[in-house]
Design a protein around this nucleic acid. Structure first.
Lengths: 178, 178
DNA sequence: GCTCGCATACATACTCGGCATACATACTGA
DNA sequence: TCAGTATGTATGCCGAGTATGTATGCGAGC
């Protein structure tokens, strides 16, 4: 979903062809999101099909085909930007299902699972800190802001793990379903 | 991804047919995840194709077809459970792209965007609180734990929004890419 | 007490969007 | 000339949603 609007956003301002879109997008994300080139082209085709984008002129240089935003494209982009993001739907993430299943079938190793998970989050914290530092060094204030968000998320995850592992488990009353 | 292993996890313990899997899954998630019925069947077929699951006997009652875990299915499930979850890849979420684009093209309304986003998170906090209360009332301790995780996430998002909106914007140095 | 209609249990088929791999082809510089 | 980069197409998997189909069961009314 966000790739679609990412492309739209990049096309606002100046027309680009697919390969360029890929590079700009990755640069905008500071190397934290490598996009598959094929996906860029299918995205552009679908945007064209939906009338949000249209090709400019004939194919140039080496088959390059530039696209520009249509008026509807502008509108769609503005609307998306104005809309608060609802994020990934509530509890649809793997970790939740994993916890539930671990609670009901692997009663013994729940603590193990929590420990491993905690270590993974700590590692991510370190990665993100490095990333933030690099972003600041490069003058990419906007990127650093994003990383800050991811850091806060990861800290929340850690806190969660700590809360969970200090609960007294056993006598699980919650694992019934029928 | 988590649906696949959710199904595996439910099948560990007792064989089920598709419709039943759907109901158990939704019950396990306490109504926070309504699965599409079609997806259950395709998931089961793929699991069968991959040898993680196999049908039991002939179709019974009203065409019901039950599935059970194969030995490889057990192994795959255990492996998945033992593996720390890496979560959705770092900065691949919509909100990040939205922030970046808003920074570079809608310089004026960034504060607006932050405000709207904050309100959305507050609303989510309220929803989650209600959900947690209900889970506890129903004796679903396991579910309440998940909701707690989601609450911590949302609080982190709010904190992030607060940090961002108290920055002094303008003089954006970070929005260059080329 | 039978039947019509609706709900529910159970399943398949089709479609679309995201995403990845593989392939093709032109250019460019050592 | 050969490696690499720039640029694009084709194809396929997977997650997810919609539409459709067929049994069974159940209540309302004649």
């Amino acid at each position: 979903m966000s790739l679609k609007f990412g492309v739209l956003g990049l096309l606002k301002g100046e027309p680009l062809h697919g390969y360029e879109v890929k590079n700009r997008f990755e640069a905008m994300l500071g190397g934290t999101w490598e996009v598959n080139i094929g996906q860029i082209y299918t995205t552009l085709q679908r945007l064209e099909r939906d009338g949000l984008v249209r090709p400019i002129g004939r194919r140039g240089d080496r088959g390059k085909l530039q696209y520009e935003l249509s008026p509807e494209g502008h509108r769609a982009l503005d609307h998306w930007l104005a809309q608060p993001d609802s994020g990934p739907q509530q509890l649809h993430e793997d970790i939740y299902v994993k916890l539930l299943l671990a609670t009901r079938i692997a009663n013994g190793n729940l603590q193990q699972l929590l420990g491993r998970q905690k270590r993974a989050y700590l590692q991510r914290l370190r990665d993100l800190n490095r990333l933030e530092e690099r972003a600041r060094r490069d003058g990419r204030v906007d990127l650093a802001r994003l990383v800050r968000g991811a850091l806060l998320h990861t800290e929340a995850d850690l806190k969660w793990m700590d809360e969970l592992s200090s609960e007294r488990f056993g006598a699980e009353e919650g694992a019934r379903t029928e």
